[in-house]
Amino acid sequence: MPATACLIQDRLGLGTGCGALDFNQGCSGYVYGLSLAKGLIEGGMARRVLLLTGETYSKHLHCADRTVRTIFGDGASATVIRAVESDRDLLGPFVLGTDGRGARQLVVRAGAFRLPAAVSHGSEPCEAGGARSCGHLYMNGPEIFTFTLKTIPGLVRRLLAEASLSIEDVDFFVFHQANRFMLERLRDKIGIPVERFCINLETYGNTVSATIPMAIEAAIAAGQMKPGQRIMAVGFGVGYSWGACLLTAPGELTK
């Protein structure tokens, strides 16, 4: 404590009339953040929302654990969501979901009341000749992969059904950038054309809640994504938690 959002409010020189809160969601966090922003704006509680994602998973990785060191990177993003008059939905619909039975598959076990971080936890040998402690990130890759293959195609179908759209109506699919292998398998299983499916891992790796906005930014910078296009964002992972929504590519938000 205090909430990081309170520190950021001060550092950005924002007025004291703005609300600020933290939420901790991981891989699905960006989609959840957009859903909170939409709720705050459409509920009349805010006109503008600054959604920040920031991840420093490097602090959770044991230097000798090759199972996760090759995947994760640190990253952050800032997105402004503001109220505009529009005759169509520029953000949404949303489909969200949770299955806490998967909590132990992607986890830092120490750090809360039952297993305080202040106590030192000895490292133990782990897969691939590495080591970690319960104060470090553990990821059961195969089990997470099974979860995504079972959950994400249905999530995409539900969102399309909710919006009465088909895959052809979506200009660009931006999934949480978990890893290339998983993304390509999900893409092929769902039947999304390669040219409309974003893969943006080479520079930063998996930056958890920051992957979706970082991929959108990179696609716009590369000219692959045009302002005003219909984007599907799909977040999934630690929790297990997942969420998908439609959004309008930034740059031409009015109308």
Binding site: E127, A128, G141, P142, E143, T146, L149, F181, R185, D188
Partner: peptide, 26 residues
Amino acid sequence: DSVAVLSTIAFIDEHYGITVSGEELS
């Protein structure tokens, strides 16, 4: 190893339309 298990999950999913548990396959 875990990478081989991942690849086998993908192979079974694609070939048989069945998503097996990563833990059980391991």
